[in-house]
């Protein structure tokens, strides 16, 4: 029998989940007490947890209770628009980011020709492009997709480009010795060893895409979750605004965990030992 270690060595995964749930509950109770009972901040501005739960009802409820139906925009219009903008923006990011990243990661000349421009573009604060995007692409989904794809391309691209750099040269040489052509070297050696980096980029891109989506919709869009937040805030339904926010957070967490799970399946040699 193993000797009993310090207390933290005996904490299991489900203990951790319990701890987090308990902490969220405690924070909720304190929050409720500070704002609902003591009114440190006016509860109209800062909703209490009970009002956030009411907010979910407000969003999905129909008839008298719903604010959205009063403005003749059902919740699903917003959800559909956001899902469309998010997925297409991220898709463009992947389609542009991974090939260009692999190109500048494998070829020195390509990196020297366009590398600096990519670092420059990366330095552009993407929020600054939102007002011009309205002028270029109008008021529908297009400017939002532009912003999301601009924000998501560069994390994917730069992380992917770092991948082929880490390949052990002796692996490439041994592939050459066994008669692999350039394409086969790329497909069998370079691509698999870049896989972890692509996934790291993807995980960053999932978070940054959600942020840019919300920002792009908050600043000058009439549909989407961000626009819903603005709408609810301007009706002083901050509970509903926080409900939208929490749903967005939940979606991001689920997507991030999904990518992490896929990464652990596809690249176990890299993500296997990381515990967090």
């Amino acid at each position: 029998m193993l000797p009993r270690g310090p207390w933290w060595t005996r904490v299991k995964t489900w203990h951790k989940i319990l701890i987090v749930a308990f902490e969220v509950f405690i924070i909720g109770v304190i929050w409720q007490f500070l704002i609902g009972t003591l009114e440190l901040i006016n509860p109209i501005f800062m909703p209490t947890p009970t009002r956030i739960i009411e907010g979910f009802g407000l969003l999905f409820g129909s008839g008298e209770k719903s604010v959205i139906s009063a403005t003749d925009q059902a919740i699903w219009v917003h959800i559909r628009r956001s899902a469309f903008c998010y997925s297409s923006g991220l898709l463009i990011g992947v389609i542009v980011g991974i090939p260009v990243g692999l190109l500048i990661g494998t070829s020195r000349t390509a990196y020297r020709l366009i590398g600096r421009f990519i670092w420059w573009l990366y330095a552009v604060p993407w929020v600054a492009l939102r007002p011009p995007a309205t002028i270029w692409f109008g008021f529908e989904a297009a400017p939002v997709i532009f912003i999301v794809s601009f924000a998501s391309t560069f994390p994917i691209l730069l992380n992917t480009a770092a991948g082929p750099q880490t390949v052990d040269p002796s692996l490439l040489r041994s592939a050459q010795v066994f008669g692999a052509g350039r394409f086969k070297q790329f497909w069998k050696v370079l691509l698999p060893s870049s896989l972890p980096f692509i996934f790291v980029g993807l995980r960053q891109a999932i978070v940054i895409s959600m942020i840019s989506l919300q920002v792009a919709e908050i600043v000058g869009s009439s549909k989407g979750l961000g626009a819903l937040i603005v709408l609810m805030t301007s009706h002083f339904k901050t509970g509903a605004a926080f409900a939208v926010l929490l749903s967005a957070a939940l979606i991001t967490i689920i997507l991030g965990q999904g990518v992490r799970y896929t990464a652990e399946k596809l690249a176990p040699w890299h993500f296997g030992q990381v515990r967090r």
């Binding site: 951790k16 701890i19 987090v20 902490e23 969220v24 501005f45 800062m46 978070v207 959600m210 942020i211 989506l213 919300q214 920002v215 908050i218 979750l225 961000g226 937040i229 603005v230 805030t233 301007s234 901050t238 605004a241 926080f242 939208v244 926010l245 929490l246 967005a248 957070a249 991001t252 967490i253 991030g256 967090r276």
Partner: peptide
């Protein structure tokens, strides 16, 4: 630790209107 990671996933920029 876990709380910090989950809070990191909240799109805080969407809080701007509030």
């Amino acid at each position: 630790g876990p709380l910090a990671y989950y809070a990191y996933a909240v799109p805080r920029s969407a809080l701007a209107p509030v």
